[in-house]
Computed example of a mutant assay.
Amino acid sequence: MSDTLIIYKTEDGGVAILTPVTSCGLTVEQIAAKDVPTGRPYKIVDRSELPTDFSEQDRWAVDEAHLTDGVGADYGVGSKNPFVMPEPSEDEAVEEEPATPEQEPVT
């Protein structure tokens, strides 16, 4: 489980928590931009900064003045903008063997 979380304020004033899965090839910042609703400010936090009892999460509050790490981009539900995976840097690029063509079926 990731120790890095993304928090933002929901429409009804609650606190939403996203657990980014960076094994997908995106950075936490890219995941936040993609998954936080359009225009909503967010903060990337360490799990240790949040209360440990999630049973009262519906009572949590967050001041938007503290949500300073970015704003959700226009990639969410209803968006007409496709999310494009960034090209890996040369350090991260992995050379792959070309795929072999499939054999023609014998009839």
Rank of each mutant, 00 (worst) to 15 (best):
D3V: 01
I6R: 01
Y8V: 02
T10L: 05
T10P: 15
E11S: 08
E11D: 08
G13S: 08
G14N: 07
I17D: 00
L18P: 01
L18I: 13
V21H: 04
T22K: 07
T22S: 06
T22V: 08
C24N: 09
G25F: 00
L26G: 07
T27D: 10
T27L: 09
V28M: 00
V28A: 00
V28G: 03
E29W: 05
E29I: 08
Q30V: 03
I31T: 03
A32C: 04
K34V: 01
K34L: 11
D35H: 09
D35G: 00
D35Y: 04
D35I: 00
V36D: 08
P37A: 01
T38R: 07
G39I: 07
R40P: 08
R40L: 11
P41I: 02
K43C: 06
K43L: 13
V45N: 11
R47W: 06
R47D: 07
S48F: 09
E49Q: 15
L50V: 06
D53E: 07
F54T: 11
F54A: 09
S55E: 07
S55W: 04
R59Y: 06
W60A: 08
E64P: 15
A65I: 09
A65L: 12
A65N: 14
H66P: 01
H66L: 09
L67A: 12
T68A: 13
T68Y: 11
G70W: 10
G72E: 05
G72L: 05
A73T: 10
A73F: 09
A73E: 14
D74W: 03
Y75S: 04
Y75R: 06
Y75C: 04
G76P: 10
V77N: 10
S79W: 13
S79Q: 11
K80E: 13
K80P: 06
N81D: 12
P82C: 03
P82L: 04
P82E: 03
V84S: 05
V84L: 12
M85E: 14
P86L: 04
P86Y: 05
S89L: 06
A93Q: 12
V94T: 13
E95Y: 11
E95M: 10
E96Y: 14
E97K: 15
P98T: 08
P98A: 10
A99M: 13
T100G: 04
P101L: 10
E102Q: 14
E102C: 08
E102L: 15
Q103W: 11
E104D: 15
E104V: 15
P105E: 13
T107A: 14
